[in-house]
Computed example of a mutant assay.
Amino acid sequence: MLTQDKVIFSSWSGGKDSALALNRALKELKKVDILFTMFDETCIHTRAHGLPREIITAQAESIGARSIIRCAAWETYEQEFLEFLKEHTQNGIGIFGDIDLQEHRDWVERVCKTYNVTALEPLWLEPREKLLEEFLKEGFKAKIIATKKEYKELLGKDLQESETLKLIEKLNIDLSGENGEYHTVVYDGPIFKKPIRIKIVGNYSTEKNEYLIVGI
Score class of each variant (00 low, 15 high):
150 E>T: 10
164 T>H: 12
148 K>P: 09
123 L>F: 05
164 T>G: 11
24 R>M: 11
117 V>P: 03
88 H>R: 02
62 S>V: 10
33 D>C: 09
53 R>K: 15
200 I>S: 06
155 L>V: 09
7 V>A: 12
140 F>S: 12
146 A>V: 02
118 T>P: 10
138 E>Y: 12
89 T>V: 15
50 G>E: 08
108 V>G: 12
213 I>E: 01
161 E>L: 11
60 A>V: 01
17 D>F: 03
132 L>D: 02
157 K>Q: 15
84 F>W: 06
211 Y>I: 02
174 D>H: 13
106 D>C: 05
209 N>M: 14
122 P>M: 00
44 I>W: 08
204 Y>K: 00
42 T>D: 00
75 E>C: 03
196 I>G: 07
194 K>R: 13
167 L>S: 03
203 N>W: 06
111 V>C: 12
183 H>Y: 02
102 Q>G: 09
56 I>R: 02
25 A>P: 05
78 E>M: 12
122 P>C: 13
107 W>P: 06
150 E>H: 05
109 E>C: 15
182 Y>V: 07
130 K>N: 03
132 L>S: 08
124 W>H: 02
85 L>K: 05
127 P>Q: 01
21 A>N: 01
165 L>Y: 03
109 E>T: 08
66 R>K: 14
116 N>L: 09
159 L>N: 10
211 Y>D: 14
112 C>P: 02
128 R>E: 14
55 I>F: 06
7 V>Y: 12
25 A>M: 08
188 D>C: 03
64 G>F: 06
163 E>S: 11
54 E>S: 13
191 I>D: 12
86 K>T: 02
181 E>I: 01
155 L>H: 01
117 V>N: 15
32 V>A: 07
1 M>A: 13
153 E>S: 13
39 F>I: 05
110 R>S: 14
14 G>Y: 02
129 E>R: 00
118 T>I: 14
31 K>Q: 07
56 I>S: 01
210 E>H: 11
87 E>I: 11
198 I>R: 02
106 D>L: 02
148 K>Q: 08
165 L>R: 15
51 L>I: 04
133 E>P: 12
171 L>H: 04
107 W>T: 00
36 F>H: 11
155 L>D: 09
152 K>V: 12
138 E>L: 15
216 I>G: 03
41 E>F: 10
78 E>D: 11
112 C>I: 06
113 K>G: 14
1 M>R: 02
200 I>E: 15
124 W>I: 12
38 M>W: 06
12 W>D: 04
207 E>S: 13
119 A>S: 14
98 D>S: 03
82 L>F: 04
113 K>H: 15
189 G>P: 04
42 T>S: 07
86 K>P: 00
9 F>V: 08
181 E>H: 03
46 T>C: 13
59 Q>C: 14
135 F>G: 09
160 Q>M: 02
193 K>F: 10
123 L>T: 03
68 I>F: 04
